[in-house]
């Protein structure tokens, strides 16, 4: 739902894993799922520490 977040002007946006499980992946192994979650949260923490002046997306390979 990144486009929606951009449209409404959310300042710090981290694309996640999907609508039905933004911080998980029901198809993956529990270990892979945990790793995915850690990665998204790591980017969220980076976003919180970044100075932004407008709606900014923090993509996976940042």
């Amino acid at each position: 739902m990144t486009p929606v977040a951009k449209t409404v002007g959310s300042p710090r946006i981290v694309p996640a894993a999907g609508i039905v499980h933004p911080l998980g992946n029901a198809q993956a192994t529990p270990e892979a799922e945990q790793k995915l979650r850690r990665d998204i949260i790591r980017r969220a923490l980076q976003a919180l520490q970044a100075d932004v002046t407008e709606s900014t997306v923090f993509p996976a390979q940042s």
């Binding site: 933004p22 911080l23 998980g24 992946n25 029901a26 799922e33 945990q34 979650r37 850690r38 949260i41």
Partner: peptide
Amino acid sequence: QRLLPVDVLREL
């Protein structure tokens, strides 16, 4: 946790 990542935040 797939919605609210309490487990990962506890780790951190």
